[in-house]
C-alpha cells in the first residue's frame, strides 16, 4: 500500500470512529437539582431480663420525640433541605442483640408489642426466638402490620411536630416483651438491647456540573 493511501485510510478511520461514537458530551453547565437524600436513624433500649422463671415479661417506655430526634438526625443537611413538608419518615426495622449473655439461656415464642400512651398494646413482632447464651450482632425480627402502623403514626406526628416546631402529642411508646425463658426451673439473668430503625427521605437542593 502506498504511504499516502495508508494515511488517507487511517485519517478516514479516525474520523469515522469519532463520528460514529456515542453521544458527544456537551459543554458542562452548573445545574440545580432537588435530590432525594435518604438517611437512617435509630433508637435503642437495653432490657435487663432478671429473675423470671420460665415466663419472661418486661416493659420499657420511651419518649419517641426524644428517641427519634430529627433535629440531630438532619443537622448536617437542614440548611439545604429544599422543602421540609416533603420529608418522609417510616419504620424500617426492629432488631435485637444480646449484650450480656447467660450460658444456656434462650427465649422461645417471643412476642413484642408496642403501646402508645394508654391506647392498648399492639403486636409488632411475634413468634421469634432468642438465643441468649452468647453476645450477638443485631438480629432482625419479622414485623406485623398493626404494630408497624402504630409506630408509623407516631413517627408521622414526630415529623409534623418537627415541621411546625411543636411538641409531639402522646409521645410515650411502651415496648412489652414476653416469651418462654428456657431452661425452666432456673432464673433468667441476661441483658439484651432492642433497636428501632427508621428510614428518612428528604429533598435537598444541590448544584452539580453536568
Amino acid at each position: 500500500m502506498q504511504r499516502a493511501n495508508f494515511y488517507s485510510i487511517a485519517g478516514l478511520l479516525c474520523l469515522g470512529l469519532a463520528l460514529s461514537a456515542a453521544e458527544c458530551p456537551n459543554i458542562p453547565e452548573v445545574e440545580t437539582r432537588l435530590v432525594d437524600l435518604a438517611l437512617n436513624g435509630s433508637t435503642t433500649r437495653v432490657f435487663q431480663a432478671r429473675g423470671s422463671n420460665n415466663v419472661y415479661q418486661e416493659t420499657k417506655t420511651i419518649d419517641i420525640e426524644e428517641a427519634i430526634d430529627l433535629d440531630s438526625i438532619l443537622v448536617e443537611i437542614e440548611d439545604v433541605i429544599a422543602d421540609a413538608d416533603s420529608v418522609q419518615i417510616s419504620a424500617s426495622s426492629i432488631s435485637y442483640r444480646i449484650v450480656v449473655p447467660q450460658a444456656g439461656r434462650s427465649i422461645a415464642n417471643g412476642q413484642l408489642s408496642v403501646e402508645r400512651g394508654s391506647g392498648g398494646p399492639v403486636t409488632i413482632a411475634t413468634g421469634f426466638s432468642m438465643d441468649a447464651s452468647a453476645v450477638t450482632d443485631w438480629i432482625t425480627v419479622p414485623l406485623s402490620s398493626g404494630g408497624v402502623n402504630l409506630v408509623n403514626d407516631m413517627l408521622q406526628d414526630v415529623l409534623v411536630a418537627w415541621q411546625k416546631g411543636t411538641s409531639v402529642p402522646n409521645s410515650q411508646l411502651t415496648y412489652a416483651v414476653a416469651g418462654n425463658s428456657l431452661p425452666a426451673g432456673s432464673e433468667t439473668n441476661f441483658d439484651w438491647e432492642l433497636k428501632l430503625t427508621v428510614s428518612i427521605v428528604a429533598p435537598i437542593e444541590v448544584d452539580v456540573i453536568n
Binding site: 435530590v35 417510616s90 409488632i124 419479622p142 414485623l143 406485623s144 402502623n149 427521605v201
Partner: peptide, 9 residues
C-alpha cells in the same frame, strides 16, 4: 415485613 419501608437515595 408489616409495611416497614427502606428508602434508597
Amino acid at each position: 415485613d408489616g409495611g416497614a419501608v427502606q428508602y434508597y437515595p
